[in-house]
Amino acid sequence: MTLLDFTILAAKVVLVMSVLLSTVPILVWVERRGSAFIQDRLGPNLVGPFGLLQPLADVVKFLFKEDPIPIAAHRFLFPLAPLCSLVPAAVTFAAIPFGDTIDLWGKTITLQIADINVGLLYIVAFGSLGIYGILLAGWSSNNKYSILGALRSSAQMISYEVALGASLIGPLMVYGTFSLREMVHLQASHWGILLQPVAFITFFISAFAECNRLPFDLPEGEAELVAGFHTEYGSMKFALFFMAEYLHMITISALTVTLFFGGWQLIPGLVPLAQWIGVATYPTSIGLSLLQVFSFTLKIGFFLWLFIWIRWTFPRFRYDQLMSFGWKILIPVALGNIFLTTLAIYLKWI
């Protein structure tokens, strides 16, 4: 491993993390304006044109606001909990390929930070670590509402994690590899959703529950439990939880796109459009790589909008409905998908 390799890796990490972190304020803006649009009202529109600088103002506010640690809170675990939430959410994106390869300075750079051959397991592993942030936040706040919200939220997350894992088995059987890069390569002719529609539905629903997003956000529902596990958190620690939630959303959308919607494979019709505009698209040109990254971004953007759209359209589930749905409906459906896929593979349909 030469110095050039190392520098390229460092540059990739810095670049991807910067893009991720700057997507979070954009998402905040989209959520606030989008929800306003759905609810037939104006959103933030005073700070900057169309309220675009509102998230920036929020960041400044979070930095300069007082960041208290309540008297009753555990002094070590209370600040640790937001970190436990942020770090897994931020790291998970490393295994996701956002483009094929690009040739620069005589080296072929893969557009993926860590092309480990257990990419999918890596993402599942860090996803399951996100529970600790919530549990520790609730317990260390020493507040009845926090701990109840934390327990309910974690119980919900672990219930849907079983369904999430089980729904991933179907695509794994079809692709035969854990490596996300190979999965995208295998979707060159047709996308994964044509082969595994049931797995997509189960995965997407479980993803909502994993991210604590409506219709599964009772544990942090505003009118129900004050603010759930982050009642006692303010200023930057609260902002870290917020960032962790949005980063988790981005990563889950990216994973959905990679598994079921072709990853960075070009959206059909993009190549003629690009050639008409004048972007070069031979196999290893920079133009093609940019097109791939653009397709990927567009697809992720669609799913992020879907997250926001669903949040502001549906009412939330009651907690026992939520748990029954996760254990009694999703898990059998996911297992049924495994059986069906096995049958299809045995009969050589797939």
Binding site: M1, V13, L63, M236
Partner: peptide, 23 residues
């Protein structure tokens, strides 16, 4: 690739601690 994982972890940790420290 494995080094990349550790690097990403280190970056995320520095980011989190940095934000908390800045605040």
């Amino acid at each position: 690739n494995h080094l990349a994982v550790f690097m990403m972890l280190g970056f995320a940790l520095i980011l989190g601690l940095g934000l908390l420290g800045l605040s």
